[in-house]
């Protein structure tokens, strides 16, 4: 088991380095000069002043040198400083922002997994009956509407019209921080984030369980006199979960994308909002670090998925 996890982590690190190179190169190839972010448009700099600024920011050296210098720093835990106005250390920006993002994404995923799996089971067991048909409608809507649309419509309906939830932020300004207040702010964006994933998980769970219910070993369980409810819960669901676990792992990347939308719509003070601001300002150190952290999170989640898969399926050789 330990070896299995080590191998997965090793593979994850290689992926992470590849990701960092890709991001680095893509950003440098992108049109626009990071120096522009430091120039007051009403008072253009002379070419010498431009060069000085570049040299100060290390932007005049060849790409591989820039990359290696940056990686050395990253390895030492030194993520540099934001290129924006107050030059905050990137590490501090990240540590402030990562908590809210993990909270939002984590809640969204937990909701999606619970709702998706439960609805999938109900649908499969009632296949072709009214309940199954009724559940297929929200599932279809959830899968086919883009994340930003879900976010905007949800915001409009639930906080603007119905006023069930605050329309943004993580806390009510002026109130002392409390868990209740945090939850009130969290519920709507987390639910909206979960919709697409819940719908997808439900479709997979339904299809997978329908297939499993036709397997010989389910008939064997029935031939022993096992109650139908228990046949489903004990014999079928665990087998049906196998492909769903893989699906959940592979949607984590998409969940990050969805979280960025949700954060910007709900003004949620997480990494997504920070990343959007950083992209607008071409704040390279922040973009790079944030991308790497997001990438690392996805990789960790994928490793956890593999471990979960091995735990559910005894046939996986953990070696």
């Amino acid at each position: 088991m330990a070896l299995f996890i080590l191998r997965r982590i090793g593979a994850g690190l290689v992926m992470l380095v590849a990701l960092s190179m890709l991001v680095f190169v893509l950003l440098r190839l992108a049109p626009g000069d990071p120096v522009d972010a430091y120039i007051d448009p009403s008072a253009p700099l002379s070419p010498t002043e431009m060069a000085e600024t570049r040299a100060r920011l290390g932007l005049d050296r060849p790409l591989p040198v820039q990359y290696l210098a940056w990686m050395r720093q990253v390895a030492a835990g030194e993520l540099g400083y934001s290129l924006q106005r107050n030059h905050e250390p990137v590490a501090r920006l990240l540590s402030e922002r990562i908590g809210p993002t993990l909270l939002l994404m984590g809640s969204g995923l937990v909701i999606a997994i619970i709702v998706g799996i439960a609805a999938g089971i109900v649908s499969a067991v009632n296949r072709g009956r009214p309940l199954d048909v009724a559940l297929s409608v929200p599932a279809f809507v959830g899968i086919s509407s883009p994340a930003f649309l879900t976010a905007l419509v949800g915001l409009f309906v639930f906080s603007v019209i119905l006023r069930w939830a605050p329309s943004g932020g993580m806390r009510t300004p002026g109130l002392p921080p409390s868990t209740g207040d945090l939850l009130r702010h969290l519920v709507l964006p987390a639910c909206l984030l979960s919709i697409g994933h819940a719908a997808l998980i439900m479709r997979y769970m339904r299809a997978s369980l329908i297939e499993v219910l036709n397997q010989d070993y389910v008939r064997t369980a029935r031939s022993k006199g096992v109650r139908e409810r228990w046949v489903i819960v004990k014999h079928a669901v665990r087998n049906a979960l196998l492909p769903v676990v893989t699906l959940i792992g592979s949607t984590l990347g998409a969940a990050v994308g969805g979280a960025i939308f949700i954060e910007s719509v709900f003004n949620w003070p997480g990494m997504g909002l920070m990343l959007i601001n950083a992209v607008e300002a071409r704040d390279y150190p922040v973009i790079m670090a944030a991308t790497l952290v997001v990438g690392a999170c996805v990789l960790v989640a994928n490793i956890l998925t593999d471990i979960a898969y091995a735990a559910v399926d005894p046939r996986i050789k953990i070696a």
Partner: peptide
């Protein structure tokens, strides 16, 4: 009646046992 008064054995031993449950769990179940 199933499993108590009538026991049944199927043709395919490869697919008739549940892959994620132990032999002991499946044999004690009836």
């Amino acid at each position: 009646v199933r499993g108590a008064a009538i026991g049944m054995v199927f043709q395919e031993p490869m697919t008739s046992l549940n892959p994620v449950l132990t032999i002991g769990d499946q044999i004690t179940e009836p």
